[in-house]
Each structure stands twice: as structure tokens, then as C-alpha cells.
């Protein structure tokens, strides 16, 4: 990936936590770039600093060393070019689903007259048109996560930062949402940085998979996925070559020998 067209880029990013003797180095010298329209997955053992990288990209805290860039602008704080989505849906219980989807737009100062149609279109795309006026507790886990995805897309970010967005869902719901996400990413030509522990998910959704080492996290491998149908993960799942990719990732993560 050439840095010239990168939507998201980390240059030698190191992040430490704590001070003096008790410092923990979460990530060390991480450099990577995600190109326009590309979907890149990041996998690695628990605690290796994946979420830390995502928070740095979102501008929630600065790197200890190195820089992050979004749309070739250095990240110095929260910015409108990115939007993130976590394993938790983070829907506000006192807002209806529609109001939740409009949340980011509201913060960005978009007028109500403009927010309404945008939210309505996204709710329709996420099959939530009938639920617009309901409250989060009235929805299933899968529907709530769809609403969270709609909220993330509503601000029309250059880069979507997705931190294990489907890991709390049951297997079937997860596959349906993966399919919806992949099609949405294709239709909107969005760039996405996707953190996951699910190796099959990483392979079926991505153009490339990056593998991190145990803490302090570094990128130890980059695997381009040369499979068709990136926009149709359900199709990709049936590819015989999928198993080879997953086996390779398992070997890299040393899944068999890793202590839990």
C-alpha cells in the first residue's frame, strides 16, 4: 500500500501506559497503511494493543511516539474523518433508534432537516425502518448492532474503525451482519480498519489481514487475501482456499500453544 493514497496510516506508532517503572508498552513501532476503499483486518492475541491503535486513530489519546494520519492529515485529536464502532452497541437508552443514528450528525452540527432523511435512508438500508421510533431496549442484540452501524455510517466518515463489532452476536446473526457490512462497504466505497478475533471473519471480509504479536504488539505478518467476493462473505466462506488462510493465521498466532 503506497502511503500517497492511504486513508489511514500509522507511522512508527508506539504507545506506553503508566509512568516510571510501571510502564506497559502496548504497541511498539507499528507502521501500516490502509488504502482508499480497502478493508484491512487486524488480528492478534488479547491485550496486544489492537484497541489502543484504534483509539489513537480516533484521536482519543495520542501515541507516545510516531504519528497517525487520516486522509493524510496528522491526527491530533478527535476528528470528523473517522467513526468507530465497538463490540458494545453504545446506543443511548434515552434516545429512540432514529435519534441514536442521528447522534453523530447532531454533534457535527448538521441541521435536523438534513439529519432526518440521512437517518431514514440508513435505517432502511439496515432493515430497521420499522424500528426507528423504538428504544434500544426493545431491540434484539443484532438489531442494536445494526443501529450502531447506521450511526457510524451516518456521519459519512472516510475511515470506519471497527473493534470486534460482531463478537457478541450469535453465529447466524453474525453472518447476516457481516454480509450487510460487506455490501455496505462496497456500495459506499468506504475504507475500514477491522479488529477481530474471528479468523474466518477476518479472511471473509478483508482485502488484507495484519497479524500482531503478543505485547508489546508489533505487526508480524501481512497477508493479502486473494479470494473473490469481498462484498459477499457468505460466498467467500464456501471457498476451499479459505481453510488454508485460516490455518496460516492459526499458525502465526500460535493458537495451539498460546496460554490463555
Amino acid at each position: 500500500m503506497s502511503a500517497a493514497t492511504a486513508r489511514l496510516e500509522f507511522r512508527a506508532v508506539t504507545r506506553r501506559f503508566g509512568r516510571a517503572e510501571a510502564t506497559v508498552t502496548a504497541v511498539e513501532a507499528v507502521s501500516l497503511a490502509v488504502g482508499d476503499g480497502e478493508v484491512v483486518s487486524l488480528i492478534g492475541p488479547s491485550g496486544c494493543g489492537k484497541s489502543t491503535l484504534l483509539n489513537i486513530a480516533a484521536g482519543l489519546y495520542p501515541p507516545s511516539e510516531g504519528e497517525a494520519y487520516v486522509d493524510r492529515v496528522r491526527v491530533t485529536g478527535p476528528n470528523r474523518q473517522v467513526a468507530f464502532m465497538l463490540q458494545k452497541d453504545l446506543l443511548l437508552p434515552w434516545r429512540s433508534i432514529r435519534e441514536n443514528v442521528e447522534f453523530g450528525l447532531e454533534i457535527h452540527g448538521v441541521a435536523a432537516a438534513e439529519r432526518r432523511p440521512r437517518a431514514a435512508a440508513l435505517l432502511a438500508r439496515m432493515h430497521l425502518a420499522d424500528c426507528a421510533d423504538r428504544y434500544p431496549h426493545q431491540l434484539s442484540g443484532g438489531m442494536r448492532q445494526r443501529a450502531a452501524l447506521a450511526r457510524t455510517l451516518a456521519v459519512d466518515p472516510s475511515v470506519l474503525l471497527l473493534d470486534e463489532p460482531f463478537s457478541a452476536l450469535d453465529a447466524q446473526t453474525k453472518m447476516v451482519l457481516q454480509q450487510d457490512l460487506a455490501q455496505t462497504l462496497r456500495d459506499t466505497r468506504k475504507t475500514a480498519f477491522f479488529i477481530t478475533h474471528d479468523l474466518v471473519e477476518a479472511v471473509t471480509l478483508s482485502d488484507r489481514v495484519l497479524v500482531m504479536s503478543r505485547r508489546p504488539g508489533r505487526i508480524i505478518e501481512e497477508i493479502p487475501i486473494a479470494l473473490p467476493d469481498r462484498d459477499r462473505p457468505l460466498e467467500r466462506r464456501r471457498q476451499p482456499a479459505l481453510g488454508d488462510y485460516v490455518a496460516r493465521l492459526m499458525a502465526l498466532l500460535d493458537v495451539v500453544h498460546a496460554e490463555v
Binding site: G59, L60, P78
Partner: peptide
């Protein structure tokens, strides 16, 4: 953090 990331 969600709100802050949206530049609140």
C-alpha cells in the same frame, strides 16, 4: 469516548 470521537 463515543461522543468525544464524534468531536463533542
Amino acid at each position: 469516548n463515543l461522543a468525544r470521537a464524534f468531536t463533542a
